[in-house]
Nucleic acid binder design. Structure first.
Length: 837
RNA sequence: GCGGAUGUGGCGGAAUGGUAGACGCUACAGACUUAAAAUCUGUUGUCCUUUUGGGCGUGCGGGUUCGAGUCCCGCCAUCCGCACCA
């Protein structure tokens, strides 16, 4: 076969990409009357190069977007850049380039890479969060939230990353280390801006219930992150004083099992006493040093320091309990103090055994009446209350309600809901981010920058020769007059966490007028996003913040949208085999060759070790650059690979053999399209196959089951190849082009044009002839005692007695029955006959 | 520790409680070719059998059912998330 008959992506790809752009094929029309579909993939950070994971992500979204267009929707499928962030500053420090220049160059490069893959993006809506035209509107929104009381400033202990010289959110601290630098995090006190996400804790939790198109896993993760728990907040008084220590407990039912009160090292009471007690001071220091890694916590001994105070038990003032400072009590959850009930809490039990405190059983699951609790395993299961005066015999739930009611009636406590979720600290001591639009005045305090003075633009003339925030040391930028009193004042030099930038970009995509963040009516027409696709690593942070931000905007009346993402899909990673030499150094796949099960290094001939199949990463040298493979195979083969084989939520292993196979299929499809014969005559079987494919592939794409859609296209291609020329076959060839066009759009356009048609991107999805979906013959299974013995081809809808008769007539069946008595015959219409002996 | 997911040929994976292994990859054999590439045809879970055919097979052990990869109970392994949250 000559080269002329091959599909040549190196020519065709660019041609069709240009045509789509000229025809504005994928530009979304706000005014359209068609049903809308907003398909969104998480926008990338412009790190420099597109990663193969991006290609998989955007290919999925692209197939859905193109399919939605073909099925009559007005599709919004935008792309932009999450362009603020630390890598730009790191590059500035390492290479002496400006973060802005570095970022914009990266955007240009990555955009060119994306274009080569033929994604159906509406580039007219492209945005970059680092441009004043974006972040200026973000500043306006921030000030609206400030005016509504959803932003506040607080002196607070923060996680300080000593390498990156910045504050990290709790979520950015992993095992006590900075998520980027990996350096052990220190605690520092700084004045910080916070967003009141905790005001929305309940709403965000309840809202999860309506997100039935989200993965259960993600909803559960958010639920746990919000961490709502109900209990009793109550006071353990100092004897003959109204003052005391407030504790929070989810187990008020176990109050009669209390044997001590423990407070956090940072608790004000501990702090106060420590001033005059060097030993306590030393103990507190020790608590603070305690490691926060998984291993540290698991093995950490429960330690306490008896501070000599006693408190009254709320249910029996004559009963006094000792107070300890304990290393396992957290200051920033609940009240920073707990009462210990050792029999029914493992930590408390460990503590009590160590310091020889009483351990009283107050819950029994059998008839244990012995008040003295034995053993070292706390009992946390359900049961009946015992040794608890009037509560004896109650269930745990009854007792909880009873104690809370009593506390509220007597005024020493109240039912309370606690959350694990903390307010969102958004201040970052960084240059490359959205400037916080606040001016600090000695007289007026923190004053919002007036709207007319927005955007507060980042100065370009900054240096990165020393760590820390260049905005702090800029000679003029921070020097402004107070908008209120006119006196000399100072600009806030902190910038916003970049998660703020990504908390509303989907709204700006839907509507980007010049004078304001978005046009409410237009945004509401597009939102919520119908299908959001991205990595599961954003299951908590980005997705929770975006949900919060949308609710906050809704709360202040700016937009009537509660949940920004109606349907969420988290795709798997792209992985690749790793290789190492004998010394443990990573090798690229090109450096090794395989002979049987033996791997050797090509250059040296020394043995190589084939390691785990892992996520592609530069450090492990198992990356594949999208540009290289597009050069080699064209966009369509790469896109096809991204969709084939692995279910989209699972990891996809990159392989040479796999991409070669995709390349072959693209060529095979191309050859098929050259076989339109103009022949007459029908082929009912092929018609059926075609229409079953149309229906099935459509359903698969809607369900994002791209691997199944791909399998059905192979199936149809096989059937077409085997069929004799006919009008049906020609129709099937046209159909397979339409069906595969969302996946391999360049080839489809090229072939469609060759058939004398217009743009396949503008063509409708083929209509399904429902009558052709059902076969008129079916193959039924015949089982004897549940074991398959024969299959029969019968007319569809054959009556049950006739199915039975045909089954019994089979000699294979008769020999399996072997003269035994038939007890029963199960007949499932059009499916099977099971003969029970 | 808590929570969740996953487990099917050599590999990726299909399969409303009803013919397990669709489809793809790999491998092998054959056709075409001076040759190679490309392409085409066939085979490819496993064991017994010359064939016909039959036995065994969805991590392990039980159970429900005429019938279980699928439902229930109990384990095991791997992966992911959270983590001293009172």
């Amino acid at each position: 076969m000559s080269n002329v008959e091959r599909f040549n992506p190196h020519v065709a790809d660019a041609r069709w990409q240009k045509t789509w752009e000229e025809q504005a094929s994928f530009v979304a029309d706000d005014a359209s009357e068609k049903p809308r579909a907003y398909v969104l993939e998480m926008f990338p950070y412009p790190s420099g190069r597109i990663h193969i994971g991006h290609v998989r992500n955007y290919t999925m979204g692209d197939v859905l977007a193109r399919y939605k267009k073909m099925t009559g929707h007005e599709v919004l499928h935008p792309m932009g850049w999450d362009a603020f962030g630390m890598p730009a500053e790191n590059a500035a420090m390492e290479k002496g380039v400006h973060p802005g220049g570095w970022t914009r160059d990266n955007i240009a490069n990555m955009k060119a890479q994306l274009k080569r893959l033929g994604f159906a993006f509406d580039w007219t809506r492209e945005l970059a969060t680092c441009e004043p035209d974006y972040y200026g509107h973000e500043q306006a929104l921030f000030l609206k939230l400030y005016a509504a009381g959803l932003v506040y400033r607080k002196e607070s202990a923060v996680n300080w990353d000593p390498v990156d010289m910045t504050v990290l959110a709790n979520e950015q601290v992993i095992d006590g280390k900075g998520w980027r630098s990996g350096a052990p995090v220190e605690r520092r006190k700084l004045s910080q801006w916070f967003l009141k996400i905790t005001d929305f804790a309940d709403e965000l939790l309840e809202g999860l219930g309506s997100l039935d198109q989200w993965p259960d896993k993600v909803r559960l993760m958010q639920e746990n992150w919000i961490g709502r728990s109900q209990g009793l907040k109550c006071r353990f008084k100092y004897p003959s004083s109204s003052d005391g220590i407030d504790v929070f407990t989810t187990r008020p039912d176990t109050m009669f099992g209390a044997s001590f009160v423990a407070i956090a090292a940072d608790h004000p009471v501990a702090q106060k006493l420590a001033a005059n007690a060097p030993e306590l001071q030393a103990f507190i220091e020790e608590c603070r040093k305690g490691g926060t890694t998984a291993a540290d916590i698991e093995t950490a001994e429960k330690k306490g320091f008896n501070i000599g105070l006693t408190v009254e038990h709320p249910l029996d003032p004559s009963w006094h309990l000792p107070v300890y400072v304990a290393n396992f009590v957290l200051m920033d959850y609940g009240t920073g103090a707990v009462f210990g009930c050792p029999a029914h809490d493992q930590r408390d039990l460990d503590f009590a055994r160590k310091y020889d405190l009483p351990v009283t059983r107050v819950v029994a699951d059998g008839d244990e009446a012995d008040s003295h609790f034995k053993g070292d395993i706390a009992f946390t299961g359900p049961g009946k209350i015992v040794n608890s005066h009037w509560m004896d015999g109650m269930t745990i739930d009854q007792a909880k309600a009873d104690v809370i009611a009593k506390a509220e009636a007597e005024g020493w406590g109240e039912g309370q809901t606690q959350y694990r979720l903390r307010d969102w600290g958004v201040s970052r001591q960084r240059y490359w981010g959205t400037p916080i639009p606040i001016i600090h005045c000695e007289t007026c305090g923190a004053v919002p920058v007036p709207e007319a003075q927005l955007p507060v633009v980042l100065p370009e003339d900054v240096t990165f020769d020393i760590p820390g925030n260049p905005l702090d040391r800029h000679p003029t930028w921070s020097k402004v007059d107070c908008p209120k009193c006119g006196k000399a004042a100072r600009r806030e030099t902190d910038t916003l966490d970049t998660f703020v930038d990504s908390s509303w970009y989907f709204i700006r995509f839907a509507s980007q007028p010049h004078g304001k963040p978005f046009d409410r009516e237009i945004a509401e027409k597009w939102l919520p996003v119908d299908q959001y696709i991205g990595g599961v690593e954003h299951a908590i942070l980005h997705l929770l913040y975006a949900r919060f931000w949308t609710r906050a905007l809704s709360h202040i009346g700016m937009i009537d949208v509660k949940e920004p993402f109606a349907s969420l899909f988290t795709q798997g990673m792209v992985t690749h085999q790793t290789y190492q030499d004998a010394g443990g150094n990573w090798l690229t796949p090109e450096q090794v060759k395989r002979e049987g099960d033996i791997w050797t290094i090509i250059d040296s001939g020394e043995p190589a070790i084939a390691g785990r199949i892992e996520k592609m990463s530069k450090s492990k040298k198992n990356v594949v650059d999208p540009d290289d493979i597009v050069d080699q195979y064209g966009a369509d083969a790469v896109r096809w690979f991204m969709l084939s084989d692995s279910p989209p939520e699972r990891d996809l292993e990159w392989s040479e053999a796999g991409i070669e196979g995709c390349w072959r299929f693209v060529q095979r499809l191309w050859r098929l399209t050259g076989q339109v014969s103009g022949a007459d005559g029908g082929d009912k079987a092929l018609d059926r196959k075609t229409h079953q494919a149309i229906a099935g592939i459509g359903a698969d794409i809607e369900a994002l089951s791209f691997n199944k859609a791909v399998a059905k296209i192979y199936d149809l291609a096989n059937a077409i190849e085997k069929a004799a020329p006919s009008a049906s076959r020609d129709a099937a060839i046209r159909a397979i082009l339409l069906l595969s066009s969302p996946m391999v759009p360049h080839l489809a356009e090229e072939a469609w044009a060759k058939l004398g048609e217009g743009l396949i991107a503008d063509s409708p999805w083929p209509a399904v002839d429902q009558a052709l979906l059902v076969d008129d013959e079916v193959t039924i299974a015949v089982q004897v005692k549940g074991k398959l013995r024969d299959t029969l081809t019968v007319a569809k809808g054959l009556p049950q007695d006739e199915m039975e008769a045909l089954a019994l007539a089979s000699h294979k069946v008769q020999s399996a029955i072997d003269g035994a008595v038939i007890r029963k015959v199960i007949v499932v219409p059009d499916r099977l006959v099971n003969i029970v002996l």
